[in-house]
Design a protein around this nucleic acid. Sequence first.
DNA 1: GTCGCTGCAAAGTATTTGCATAGCC
DNA 2: GGCTATGCAAATACTTTGCAGCGAC
Lengths: 141, 141
Amino acid sequence: MRTMDVEDLREALRAHGQRVTNQRLVLLAALRGLGHHATAEEILHAAEDRLPALSLPTVYATLDLFDRLGLVRKIATGAGPARYDPVLDQHHHFTCRRCGAVEDLPVSVDASPALRAAAAGGHVPASAEVVVSGLCRRCAG
Amino acid sequence: MRTMDVEDLREALRAHGQRVTNQRLVLLAALRGLGHHATAEEILHAAEDRLPALSLPTVYATLDLFDRLGLVRKIATGAGPARYDPVLDQHHHFTCRRCGAVEDLPVSVDASPALRAAAAGGHVPASAEVVVSGLCRRCAG
DNA sequence: GTCGCTGCAAAGTATTTGCATAGCC
DNA sequence: GGCTATGCAAATACTTTGCAGCGAC
């Protein structure tokens, strides 16, 4: 699968009538560069050398925009701050109940019955994923 | 399936060396009585006539205990406060991105590959569920 | 009687809002 | 040039913590 680069982001933003700003370009690159499911604060720090005046509210606003455009997925863990996942293909998640860590589960599960059930209930489903929760390696050990 | 009643809760608490208190008995009954995926505050209000001095920290502590004992499931929505689900059988959830509402999806999906993948990754999985997110009837309309 | 649960107050963490300025289109 | 995004400060929302007294065992 093709990875999302700067040009793709420009296009996606324009297609939705959103402005192309440095903050948006750098923040998506920073999240992707971190290579894991980062928090807003981690993304802020990762981008600070390129945007020294960057603020946390901007990070939240930008990630929220990306989430609405389908460029990232916000993952609320229930333990600590939300994590953000750059979406490149369909995958599922493990989340630790104790520390809030999130890890990808590269398995294929057919969740379409759940999507259909949500639609049948009158809702407008956007995505379906399997969430496994428990204790991560670290917290269990 | 049999529903969890007061006697079951007594047993479950004793089996884990936990004390059987009025707050615990009333709070589980209140959550079950509400008939939906309630927030801590909703549960507090639902129990207030039976326990006028009940406090929100106690509600949180009690729901957290129930969650650890597997009597309820905490559902972090990412929009608004967490919801709590009295667990009686295996089911999945729809959550609204905008208002945080949670609804059951009475479908059967085989999520066991995801459980196995988590275990293979060194984690200790406790449960797996399909989470469909999107806009609920109300927010979409 | 002991130890854990509860209630209260307070703090802490995560996230959002209001407003003035800067910067994209 | 108009209008949106950003940065800053502050506020809000949610949840947890510390401690003293009560109640289960």
